[in-house]
Design a protein around this nucleic acid. Structure first.
Lengths: 190, 190
DNA sequence: ATAAGCATGTAAGGAGTTACATGATTCT
DNA sequence: AGAATCATGTAACTCCTTACATGCTTAT
């Protein structure tokens, strides 16, 4: 599955929840899908234009160029299901934190500790965000049939954040043990 | 921090463990850093050439074009530490599985179950890989001072994989509950 | 000898981000 | 009136991947 197809999938999918403008689409992708998906600005409008050209989405309301929402056509809905059925292309991991820790000997245990604490805080924040998202969701009506699936992704975010916190605590403890052993200490990194 | 800097960081970092050829570098990045970092083929040689031009790495042994290992120069080591000290740029998440599950209503619970089972299996495999990596590491001598840091990244991989497994089991249970409720059933997704 | 793996690169093209540009609407 | 936000797009640029191209070395 090509990358551009994945952008199409995200746009069609979001419009399957409810029709909206390109601007709202961008906000929705940033806020609601944000913890597991991202689309950049300069992709959404071109993607919408292409989808409209293929009659997979249509403009609702005024055909003025401004303030017109987009909605899925039946063909668009079919296309979405096709795309969802294709296997996800494996993502290329790029975890800057783990890369830095892998070479941690070069910067020493203290710098590593800081990095880990920072990651731990971000994970705590994510946990809070997931909680807020879940509350917001249950207050929203008209999404009953989608909510069970939304909850799967929120749960994934929570599990991931909790795993990060547990790992961070373990990692901090093992760095502390290193200091006591003296096997790796400040100023002895080269 | 620009992306290309991150490629430099990975290359310099790998060479800080031990000098090696471009080919070995590629293998090392794929196999050892693979679970949290990736560099594509066509980046490593240009990056090495650029680093050599800046006198951050040097060729060891024969200055023939073939079979020459690269090693960090003192300037290269300093550059590595600078890079490691810079904050990691936030990664843009693109989780194809969660994107599909978010729109899971379109494909129904059975298709979602399959996706989740697949992810669960991959996580089990990762767990086994992490275990193998840890064993291989402890057998390797001459890396004593690096090993504690390597172990941090292995532990992160394990926590992450275990979190995925726990989430998958929970998710499968909640999909099963959905079926019983009849709130979302086969053929009732539109 | 010949196949597998080691070793080094290049070139074309696609993907994705950022900055720029413009104007309408709504709130204060 | 002015600021904030809604709304739509483009263009340049960077990054990255993939496919291609070449030749050596070592084991069978």
């Amino acid at each position: 599955m090509a990358r551009s197809d994945q952008t199409q999938m995200a746009v069609l999918g979001a419009l399957s929840i409810r029709p909206m403008t390109g601007y709202a689409l961008r906000e929705e992708i940033r806020s609601t899908l944000g913890h597991f998906w991202s689309e950049s600005f300069g992709q959404i409008y071109p993607a919408l234009a292409e989808l409209e050209r293929q009659d997979l989405v249509e403009r609702l309301g005024s055909s003025d160029s401004r303030s017109s929402s987009f909605a899925l056509t039946p063909a668009g809905n079919a296309r979405l299901r096709d795309l969802l059925g294709e296997p996800a292309e494996p993502s290329r991991p790029r975890n800057g934190l783990l890369l830095r820790l892998f070479f941690g000997r070069q910067i020493g245990p203290d710098a590593c500790r800081e990095l880990i604490l920072e990651a731990r805080e971000k994970a705590e924040q994510q946990l809070a965000q997931m909680d807020a998202a879940r509350s917001g969701l249950l207050a929203d009506t008209g999404l009953d049939r989608d909510i069970p699936y939304f909850l799967l992704t929120i749960s994934a975010g929570e599990h991931s954040a909790r795993a990060t916190i547990a790992w961070a605590d373990e990692a901090l403890a093992s760095l502390a043990a290193l200091d006591e052993d003296g096997t790796v200490g400040l100023g002895t990194t080269d």
